[in-house]
Design a binder for these strands. Structure first.
Lengths: 156, 156
DNA sequence: AATCAATAGTTACGCTTGCAACTAATATGC
DNA sequence: GCATATTAGTTGCAAGCGTAACTATTGATT
């Protein structure tokens, strides 16, 4: 039984490579046009989709980012004047973060890009493949929630 | 039509998060036991599965790694005495890399870990979900080959 | 009320990364 | 045969990263 291990068949490797490929093609767009980092884009997306202001902690939970990443992304967006901080009257540790008009405008443009990219992926991969991929990812997402706070080093 | 963009439904985001989750759980194992980095593990896996020695360039192509990553990983494995370099008689730019006996031993142990982890994933996610995921990934892999040398910044 | 624990967010530090520039060797065009 | 381009692999550098430590504030225990 000389079972040879092949990297090509190893799920973590395949997932990683696919994620890199898919994410990089999109990242290239917002990096080129807006000089935005990925944490900044995610923060923008989180804030833009929310009715009310969010705290940094909420952003981290919503977009699966470590708090230091969020902190730096918030700082970056603040410098661009795409978001503003508002203090909480009751708890002075907390900051309520909301997009400025310029931030909302950027959000609209970037989510436009994102939607177009999503559509491009769909036609590139085929609807039934995207469906399968999505179902598979859903299973991983369930597993993540189950492993939850315990396992993820990404959110420590 | 106030179509709200939701990060949760954005494929690049979902792929990235799932890949991080799945890869990190495995990386924790080889980091803890062998203090191995991911590029080192990938290099080891590439070399171990090959009959004959490989060049650094071949390793990069086989395991989707930038040449600087490969260069550093090779250096690391060399220091551990898990691999040896052999010069090419005809072309002195090229190095032929092969695992030492200690390297082969490590390869066996680590691929054992990997296989067990793969099995754990299968039971964790369910066979039919892994099947779906795998099919979806295959579509991405086809797209990668098609976009090929042109698109990938990861292999520049 | 005083202490100790927990939480929100920031920062210092060392490590990893990718890009670009580099060295060395070989291949190509004229 | 000489100049130029290309290829293999390495390295300097700046940027991004996570860990741990930190400040500031609030909550819990007694």
């Amino acid at each position: 039984m000389t079972e040879v291990f092949e990297l090509e068949t190893f799920l973590p490797y395949r997932l990683n490579r696919a994620a890199e490929f898919v994410a990089l093609r999109f990242a290239a767009q917002y990096k080129a046009r807006y000089q935005l980092t990925r944490p900044e884009w995610r923060t923008l997306a989180a804030l833009g989709s929310s009715e009310r202001p969010m705290t940094a902690t909420e952003i981290g939970a919503h977009s699966s980012m470590h708090k230091t990443k969020v902190s730096r992304a918030v700082f970056g967006l603040e410098q661009r004047r795409w978001l503003k901080r508002e203090e909480d009257g009751r708890d002075r540790r907390v900051e309520h973060l909301a997009l400025t008009p310029a931030g909302k405008q950027a959000y609209r443009e970037l989510t436009g890009l994102a939607s177009r990219y999503q559509a491009e992926l769909l036609s590139m991969l085929g609807a039934e493949n995207v469906e399968a991929l999505s179902n598979g990812l859903q299973a991983v997402e369930r597993a993540m929630r189950k492993a939850g706070a315990s396992g993820s080093a990404a959110l420590t």
